[in-house]
Design a binder for these strands. Structure first.
Length: 342
DNA sequence: GTTCCACAGGAAAATATGGAGG
DNA sequence: CCTCCATATTTTCCTGTGGAAC
């Protein structure tokens, strides 16, 4: 029943992007000068999760590569490569210029020099989740290298601007800004429909079901496709001919649970104990968390470390914090369960 | 107001971990 | 198997903040 699993996977870039013509054209025109070996403005792409930021960025750069011979692209997820060194290393690695970097304590500025001296083809650098970068001045360094075009992807413009210094803000303000909104239900339906046509056999899922997925995903295309993938996978494992309403009912919850489980699995045993304490006793303040945690494990970490755990789990969206000072309390984030009911 | 204390989170030193090369 | 080096994690030390008791 699954014809092509790739098109349902996260990170898949389709042949045609639905409902994002304006944004695609906008971004393309920003990158246009690169086809004439000219420097380009930095592009900023913002929008909520699942709005298609990463997708159109990859789509546009791939199309650029089809049209023009002398262009390279590289994609860096700054959430995973959040240090200056890792990000630069990732870019150099994609350019194939890392041969002798690992050895010795290569001075970090050396990496920028290395990029500066890079005289290969023009390169488009996609910096995804750029607001997660611990040192955003990296953008400034890249910005000043004419042979690189930069696409910065972030959730919110403010999150990005609030963390960079003034000279960079003024340069970024003048750069081209592509804003993206959540998809409407109709648009999500079109996306789901296109994916299911390519990814699934015929009649595996009907229109009504697709609409319900679109509704449950609340404008988030990544979640919508995740739900579809989960449902299709389950139906396939259970040897159904098609996706039944029964399977679909649980798919949204399963898709969210899967995302959550992935985050949970990435926690260390100590972090997991802390998480369980907040889950079982929250909302609760840091002192009590640390007290309970110390009783629970053999070799407890310090309060400072536990605070770091809590802050990390807040970033991961596993916990949420209420209050700023002595009144700080942590709790499990309550996820509104999307309804896939008819 | 003033003082106190728990808290957040930065910086840097200390320590643990992992992976390459012997 | 061990050693060495780079990286990752943890601890130590710290400053600044804001609520609560006085």
């Amino acid at each position: 029943m699954i014809r092509d699993a790739r098109v349902l996977r996260a990170g898949f870039v389709p042949q045609e992007v639905e409902h994002r013509d304006a944004e695609v054209n906008h971004l393309s025109s920003v990158l246009e000068p690169i086809t004439n070996e000219e420097p380009t403005d930095t592009a900023i792409v913002t929008g909520p999760s699942g709005a298609g930021k990463t997708c159109i960025s990859k789509f546009v750069t791939e199309r650029l590569r089809e049209e023009v011979l002398n262009v390279e692209t590289t994609y860096v997820n700054c959430w995973r490569n959040y240090t200056r060194f890792r990000t630069l290393y990732q870019i150099l690695d994609d350019l194939g210029a890392t041969i002798d970097i690992h050895r010795q304590s290569t001075p970090h500025d050396e990496l920028v020099d290395r990029l500066q001296q890079h005289d290969g083809p023009r390169t488009v650098v996609i910096l995804d989740e750029v607001d997660q970068l611990e040192d955003p001045s990296l953008i400034y360094d890249l910005h000043s290298l004419p042979q690189f075009a930069i696409i910065c992807i972030a959730n919110k413009e403010e999150d990005l601007f609030s963390r960079v210094d003034d000279r960079l803000v003024s340069r970024l303000r003048s750069s081209e800004h592509v804003r993206m909104d959540k998809y409407h239900d109709e648009q999500l339906y079109d996306i789901l429909s296109a994916r299911s046509k390519r990814g699934l056999d015929e009649d595996v899922i009907n229109d009504n079901q697709l609409y319900r997925i679109a509704d449950a995903a609340a404008g988030d295309a990544r979640l919508a496709i995740g739900i579809l993938r989960t449902a299709a996978g389950k139906a396939d494992r259970e040897n159904h001919e098609r996706i039944t309403d029964d399977i679909l009912l649980n798919a949204a919850e399963d898709a969210r649970a899967q995302i959550k489980q992935t985050s949970l699995d990435s926690l260390t045993p100590h972090q997991r104990v802390v998480y369980d304490i907040v889950r079982d006793h929250g909302p609760v303040g840091p002192s009590e968390i640390h007290k309970r945690y110390s009783e629970e494990v053999d070799d407890p970490r310090t309060k400072r470390t536990v605070r770091a755990y809590l802050s990390k789990m807040t970033q991961y969206n596993l916990l949420e914090a209420e209050g700023t000072s002595r009144d700080r309390e942590y709790a499990i984030v309550d996820q509104p369960s999307p309804t896939l009911a008819e």
